[in-house]
Design a protein around this nucleic acid. Structure first.
Length: 199
DNA sequence: GGTAGGATGGGCT
DNA sequence: GCCCATCCTACCC
């Protein structure tokens, strides 16, 4: 495993959701032998955002979003793929950040085996369903604490300044204009549009 | 380079 | 019964 910074602690996540989504860019998601730099995120603030799964209150699926920050919210999308979110805000306030794309940095051969459809390094974890396949993250990780254990987020080995771009979120119908998607400018591992579509 | 259509199951009305 | 925070393949420039 490459050298990395310390595990991000709970106070990192106990902040406004959009702020956490922005701050996660450049951090490193680690699961077992695999790791990738987070290059694309989306904020789902929960309150005042009808696009958030938590907008209609606490259910069996959404309960973790209302709990303490720094836990994983994993759900099944289109009956086929799984998406990883990290819970934000203080306990009692809903909010989470969807991890949408990674730049693989460790365990790349293992990721390739898990992603036979990927024809390039860029394709391995470019997309929320793809990155969970590459890193073997499933609904079994629902609710796990990402400040300790095998699934964690670490700081980069060396801090670096990042050019960040903000765009609307991908694949949603309501609240479709809100600028809550964050990407590393010019990064080739980002999914979808790299710029805000001209009006 | 691009897009259209299908797969597939859980959550909610 | 309808709606998805998606991906892959086929096919067309």
């Amino acid at each position: 495993m490459m050298q990395l910074g310390p595990i991000l602690k709970r106070p990192f996540y106990a902040r406004p959701t959009a702020e956490v989504a922005r701050a996660l860019l450049g951090q490193v998601l680690v699961h077992g032998l695999t790791a990738g730099i987070i290059v694309e995120t989306e904020a789902y603030p929960g309150r005042d955002d009808l696009a958030s799964h938590s907008a209609r209150g606490i259910t069996d699926r959404t309960q973790v979003i209302f709990g303490p920050p720094g836990h994983a919210y994993v759900y099944l999308i289109y009956g086929v793929y799984e998406c990883l979110n990290l819970v934000t805000e203080p306990a009692g306030t809903p909010g989470c950040v969807l991890i949408r794309a990674l730049q693989p940095v460790a365990g790349i051969e293992l990721m390739r085996e898990r992603r036979p459809a990927a024809r390039s390094l860029e394709d391995i974890a470019r997309g929320p369903g793809r990155l969970t396949m590459a890193m073997a993250i499933t609904r079994a990780h629902y609710g796990v604490d990402v400040t300790r254990g095998s699934l964690v987020v670490r700081g980069p080995a060396e801090p670096h300044s990042l050019a960040i771009e903000v765009t609307p979120r991908i694949g949603i119908r309501i609240c479709a204009e809100r600028p809550l998607r964050f990407i590393l400018r010019g990064n080739r591992f980002v999914s979808g549009p790299r710029r805000w579509a001209a009006g």
